[in-house]
Write a protein that binds this DNA or RNA. Structure first.
Lengths: 314, 314
DNA sequence: CGGATAACTGCTCAAACGAGCAAGATTCCC
DNA sequence: GGGAATCTTGCTCGTTTGAGCAGTTATCCG
């Protein structure tokens, strides 16, 4: 397109989008036929001069969702817009809301829903509406009795999700990580715990988040791991954790010994499940999000625009 | 509008603006009639959820221009978009380009054009195209032989503008400010200088910029004023200068004695002229822009979106 | 220079859209 | 509880717009 046509297309766009003139009226003003005006407007769009944004907390980015599905093989992708967002917290809240919406519209409704715990899942539970589903059994899929003041947030997440669906919650009454392997094995041998784990393994759907591998991880916060231990994991290639298990960018468990002492379903069980919904948002989680998606650890991803764009850079 | 309608309007907007579906198709997807979809889209627009931006260096903001004309009584206002601009320099370049465009399209073409000097006007001169007008006599309206290395930029501005219009430039060979009143009066008594000043007073149109009242002013840079003198002017209410004369927010000369020693046309002559084009851009110039516009020192304002919005806050 | 090819222009025609209307639903208020 | 007022809905009709096409102009390349 010639230089003067480019300028004309801008003038036309101003009149069309800002002044709400018809292409006919613009034609009169710019001394062009209305067809020329239509072509100029089309070229302005094609050249990316026209930027249309939907500014709303519930806005999604459908084109990015589509590209994500196509490039990763996810069965579904939910990408919330980050237009007009100032903080990571707000972005995470939007993502949690979108995850709650997705769960609500999920068909068929899963009878048993396996969930992990953490800030994100808790956020999702709060965004669900009372009666979001008619009777769902929620089961925890990894250990999570907190060692410090946060006690109960893991349980409350499961209970809230179940309660709002007029269903029941099955809690996994176990720490996330044991210090000694023998203790963990003894725990798992217990009939009650074994029953919960069996239920978790047979859930029809899973919802989980992921943590980045750094000092701000929930596992550090809860006292299961020290900052030094995290650093050692990072040194061995860890990018973050999924259901309490640290993985590298190839989706492999970084520390098999630590992994053995971790209570909950295995990474491979997640990988084999037909419906696994990962909810991952925030700038610090791009690496772990990539690891989860690239290695088939989830079939559905709920995330934010920036994380999604990072995943598309390949 | 109900809450669920708001959500629907966002879903509809996503499909309409991002996926290019017709309202009919959206109706099928969301199980609504196409009229309902149309109304939802209209409400999304009305609620400001749809933001349309024209991202281009030459883009203007026509609605702001109109509001500016209506609220200030300017005969014309040119407001350049600041969408996608990262630096003040870029914004000023856009504004200068717009001023050059405005001059080029000006009808009737002024035979004599009075101009000030400075970074902005120089920028305008560079953006003008060769042959922008068929013969214009450009005359300097304030003194400006620089005292330091920048010598010649004032003259080159005038010469460039004239040259590109196949016209002639009449320079005002005088300092901007004299130290002694007597010297200034002697200078003005000179036949040549008096002739230039008379020409300046009778120009058919004026183009000028304005400087903020701080240490970065061109008058400090050129060595006519010290930082201490500027501070004193600010203490007396100065918000900036126009054609070398410092004014307060009411458009009045702050220091009459200094004003007397300043060479060039008077503020009042500017105020009485039928066509005075002020080119003012940048975040540091909001105050002086307000003073210029509110007190009728210009009939046409060329500025940026942010400055214009600041002017509309009243 | 000239023939082939590409780009552009103005048009017809059908799809898409918005304004306005009348019927139906809902809310309000006494 | 009922009547008035308001809001919502699905529609008709005229306007606005985009797709596709044929005639024209510009450009390229031997």
């Amino acid at each position: 397109m010639s230089d003067t046509d480019e300028l004309l297309s801008i003038r036309a766009a101003e009149l069309y989008y800002e002044e709400n003139q018809t292409q006919d009226e613009i034609g009169v003003i710019l001394r062009l036929t209305r067809w020329k005006v239509g072509r100029l407007l089309a070229s302005a769009k094609a050249n990316g001069f026209i930027r249309i944004e939907i500014v709303h907390p519930r806005a999604r980015r459908l084109p990015i969702e589509r590209r994500l599905r196509e490039s990763t093989g996810l069965t579904d992708a939910i990408v919330v817009s980050s237009a007009g967002v100032s903080s990571d917290v707000e972005l995470q809240s939007r993502t949690a809301q979108a995850a709650a919406d997705y769960l609500t519209s999920l068909r068929p409704i899963p009878r048993t829903l396996g969930i992990s715990w953490g800030r994100t899942l808790h956020d999702v539970s709060l965004h669900l509406k009372q009666g979001w589903a008619p009777g769902v059994n929620v089961v925890q899929i990894n250990g999570g009795v907190s060692l410090n003041q946060h006690t109960g947030t893991a349980a409350s997440t499961a209970v809230t999700i179940a309660h709002k669906a007029d269903g029941s919650a099955t809690l996994l009454p176990s720490p996330a990580i044991f210090e000694r392997l023998e203790t963990k094995q003894a725990m798992e041998a217990d009939r009650t715990v074994a029953g919960v784990l069996a239920l978790a393994r047979n859930a029809q759907a899973y919802v989980f988040s992921a943590g980045q591998a750094d000092a701000k991880s929930a596992l550090v916060d809860s006292g299961y791991l020290t900052v030094a231990q995290i650093d050692a994991l990072v040194a061995r290639g860890a990018v973050g954790d999924v259901v309490g298990r640290y993985i590298d960018q190839n989706g492999r468990v970084v520390d098999p010994e630590l992994n053995e002492r971790t209570v909950g379903i295995q990474i491979d069980q997640l990988r084999r499940a037909p419906l696994t919904i990962a909810v991952i948002s925030g700038h610090s989680k791009h690496a772990i999000a990539r690891a989860v998606v690239r290695n088939g650890l989830c079939t559905v991803l709920v995330t934010d625009e920036d994380t999604a764009n990072a995943l598309l850079q390949d």
